[in-house]
Design a protein around this nucleic acid. Sequence first.
DNA 1: TTGAAAGCGCTAACAG
DNA 2: CTGTTAGCGCTTTCAA
Lengths: 343, 343
Amino acid sequence: MTSSRATLIEVARHAGVSLASTSRALHGTGASPAMVERVRAAAEELGYSPDVTGRSLRMKKTFQVAFAVADIGNPVYVEMLTAIHEVLSPHGYRVVVMTTGDTAGAATDLVRSLGSGFVDALVISPLRADDALADEIRRAPVPVVVVGRSLDDGAIDSVSTDSADGIGQAVDHLVRSGRRRIGFLNGPLDTTPGRARQRGFDAAARANGFPAERTTVEVADDFTVAAGLRAARALLAPAADGSRLDAVVAANDLLAIGAVRAAREAGLTVPGDVAVTGMDDTELGRVYEPSLTSVSLGSSERGAAAARAVLARLEDGEAPAQHVVIGPRLLVRESTAAEGSSR
Amino acid sequence: MTSSRATLIEVARHAGVSLASTSRALHGTGASPAMVERVRAAAEELGYSPDVTGRSLRMKKTFQVAFAVADIGNPVYVEMLTAIHEVLSPHGYRVVVMTTGDTAGAATDLVRSLGSGFVDALVISPLRADDALADEIRRAPVPVVVVGRSLDDGAIDSVSTDSADGIGQAVDHLVRSGRRRIGFLNGPLDTTPGRARQRGFDAAARANGFPAERTTVEVADDFTVAAGLRAARALLAPAADGSRLDAVVAANDLLAIGAVRAAREAGLTVPGDVAVTGMDDTELGRVYEPSLTSVSLGSSERGAAAARAVLARLEDGEAPAQHVVIGPRLLVRESTAAEGSSR
DNA sequence: TTGAAAGCGCTAACAG
DNA sequence: CTGTTAGCGCTTTCAA
């Protein structure tokens, strides 16, 4: 906090050589060993450390990458962030976290703010994507990689997963374990994941020949435990003929936990009376009792892939857009055990 | 990704006025309304957005603040990050997330890297703090606020909580609810929180007059569920005389969940046979079944306080160091209910 | 291999 | 109120 930092000019003077030679010596490019030694010593002595601001201005490169999500509290995004970090930091990039809130407009504003040049690239996972957002991304002055569905007819780099297929895997698993009346607990339909998962459930219901009256769906206000609990109460209420669901496919782990709680409130056991599946394979679901059968969407892998896409794009701005797809993977745990204890 | 961005010079030319007037007009300081209008129009037309790199170099200010923690996956840090964000972003600061890993050396390196001037300040929550770290912080070229214990004899701004007192609250609560044999499940003793919590338990044991043979302590390798489960097995094993603990105070929520699982493995009910308390008041603990009685250490409040300390320090670099202490608060939930169901 | 000099985009001191 | 000019710290031509 006290004395001002030494600059390259001061190091140069201290070493008695030119500014240019000093810079070169410090980068090890085209300088004699003697020069390197001399400059290093001077730098050491003055406690010099290069100023990234001057460097950025000159090189037109900030060595920063932004990661933007609606809500950094969501464990899925935390996993992605960790993975992005791990890929990027060995390459000398810092990661700036940005929060968009959950409106498409806020995300669009954020992308527009890239114009101020504080990062070299952006990884964004928009909850809701519209044309305005796609437009803004196309116009962005730096590379943008979208985690979620592919945007703008494939012109933008993207990393996605097939969550519809993931829901299908969950349904198939339940059917194979002998469940017959399977309900779907979804999150908001005006979000990209909400829509994809609904599509997945509808397809699976069709494929398995569920009659419409056995296809019960509830939509929670939000992808949270509390919203899941409220919606699951309705889902698990007895039908007109007194029958009930024997399985619930939830659109994520938080909703699934809401479903487990609702089941218990109704005096039902999990997985004895009702099997429950989640999605995202969060620590929460792994640690919960019963541990949650969940569809992993490979959050870390998606984060890592997005980071690698950033690196590739930064290398070659003209390369064709890449679209990485990470396959979902069902992880079977206690919440769908065939003969459940009644814990 | 296509055309290069417009610069201030281009806006100036386009508006037919000087560079300085353009800058002033855009900042609204000392420019005639006519000038402002003219410049705004030109800027608009060219799609100008100011370059932060040039601005940073000139102003010697990056408008970035770093937040450094050992492990961003920890929910406590995520809460802090969110709070820091909320306080700083209205003031125009971006937040850069950095991961230190859990060695004191890595944290020291990180603080040293502040020399490159990529942020205006740092908020750091070191898991292990030693003299080298304190030294480096004192020498840092930008303000550093420590979340955790106060360092360097109070010369460094800090935000802390009294986790020892928090452990005391948990013990008192258990004693008041009639528990008599209370064990302590701690995390590593070579961490700052581990040591503080141990101190808290020892003090509470003394204050409540626990004889040594009723004071069972186990130390887990790590602050995680898996480590907690392993250590809790030992903690809950019957004593030589066949007696068992009737309560476990855990050093955080993850360890507490490990304790609940260990209890169930041993055929014990929670809270019927064994009451369990956690610490940190995480979402995980709130949602778990049984919901966890936990000591809140005010993660959000600490984050917010740290961010405010940063702002204050940035305003006045010479003001005396401030030390904010956030009091712990016990939140009683199902895991310590007096007459527990045996869920 | 080394040095001199230009200039990245911006703000602010100074003069008019 | 407006314009001219210097310069933040750095990298990189260009000449020697």
